[in-house]
Design a protein around this nucleic acid. Structure first.
Lengths: 232, 232
DNA sequence: CTTTATCGAGACACTTTGTCTCTGTCAATC
DNA sequence: GATTGACAGAGACAAAGTGTCTCGATAAAG
């Protein structure tokens, strides 16, 4: 029974917490999500089961903490990428690509999220992630690189869900294609003068022949913008 | 203890199965996913717990069966929509819209899928769903309404994931916008500088009667097509 | 050095699980 | 119509997990 004792109590608690998360991650990777129990985690970590209950109330909160920690790390990573120079469009693309890579390498997180989100509506870090992408999209939209007929928040949700598909893709090349497709959905809608648009969606106002192809932030927003969502 | 007896044994088993799935659905809706147990399901259904084990080996398979049944129903619905007349692009849009509506009304399924997919790589009905969308995309691509520089299968996965975002949207209007954005990702990619207009969707693809606008297997596929993924 | 807080772990009561086995009933057969 | 085989149904049991309580042991405070 390793004691895991450190100098101060506070430091010790932190150590045990970390070890617990580490162990849990290993167990999840080995036996899958459903088969992870408090008993196993305690035994594997080397602490008493009752002790474990003084750190976490149940398995779900352990998984949530682990998930949160990872998402935070990824968030930090993505934030650094966002800080790099470039046009808003380039930075958005870089961030989305990085996110897709993360999802591709750790598809488990998508599954975990479904479990964790049961309790709370959305994890904090995940909200930050959404906000990060949303702000980038807002910038890019102001620069004219991204459509502005849909609220940035909704576009961010779209991006994160679409890139979630990276978890099931087999190759890096496929991930790259996915990012390209997802970005295509973000682009300023085409004026679509040619025949194709007519054939596709003749009646609905998706491409209402918006006068100038990309009005950056003109005063006269066209009707589509009024339709922009105000809801969450 | 309701007996739930029917004429034949086979019919009876089917009845009990249905009742079990019904009960499980109710329990999930009431207490959430994690708190559903074999004991509760058996008690609520009105059969012995041991009996329940003669129908399903564990909770996960019950949830999987329920999920599968619903997805099958949705699949049928979507198939009917696909059968309706229209250009490939229109039919694709109709199907994707219907799928988004379903996801919007029943966000639970997305969460369930994450749990169920733990065991098997992908449920049967879900594979059919993917295939349905994939075939539609293939048609639309041949008609020139959808990009052909990415494999239809990958585009289908992209669509289904992106439309999964509909589960968290607050309004029908938001769902509509999501579909529009997702479709934008599918459209023939705007070509780069060079031969752009001419190469992509010139005049020929206006409303192709499926004639010969795009040679289905012509020898001269352009470079972009060669980059198409070959992996699953 | 004593006191206090709290960490760790043993223990208990309860629930869930998976299986075994027995009983009663249905249905096919003679 | 009675017998026999098959199978649904449920009681029971062992094993595992859960949540809580309580009791030493040890670090920090007085």
């Amino acid at each position: 029974m390793p004691k895991l004792w450190n100098e101060t109590i506070a430091e010790h608690r932190r150590t045990v917490r970390e070890a617990t998360l580490e162990t849990t991650a290993a167990l999840v990777a080995e036996h899958g999500l459903a088969s992870v129990t408090m008993s196993q985690i305690a035994k594997e970590t080397g602490i008493g089961r009752a002790t474990l209950y003084k750190y976490f109330p149940d398995v779900e909160s352990i998984l949530a903490a682990w998930h949160e920690r990872h998402v935070s790390a990824h968030l930090e990573h993505l934030t650094r990428i966002r800080e790099q120079a470039g046009t808003p469009g380039e930075r958005l693309e870089a961030v989305l690509h990085a996110y897709a890579d993360i999802t591709h390498e750790r598809p488990q997180h998508t599954e975990l999220a479904a479990l964790v989100h049961r309790g709370e509506h959305l994890a904090h870090a995940e909200q930050h992630l959404n906000a990060l992408v949303r702000d980038l999209i807002t910038e890019a939209a102001q620069a004219g690189a991204v459509r502005d007929d849909v609220a940035p928040g909704e576009l961010a949700t779209y991006c994160l869900h679409a890139l979630g598909a990276a978890g099931g893709l087999p190759s890096k090349a496929a991930v790259h294609r996915l990012v390209a497709v997802t970005l295509a959905g973000l682009r300023t809608s085409r004026p679509a003068p040619d025949a194709m648009g007519a054939a596709q969606s003749p009646q609905h106002a998706a491409t209402p022949g918006g006068s100038s192809s990309i009005p950056p932030h003109g005063p006269g927003r066209h009707a589509a913008h009024a339709r922009q969502s105000t809801d969450t």
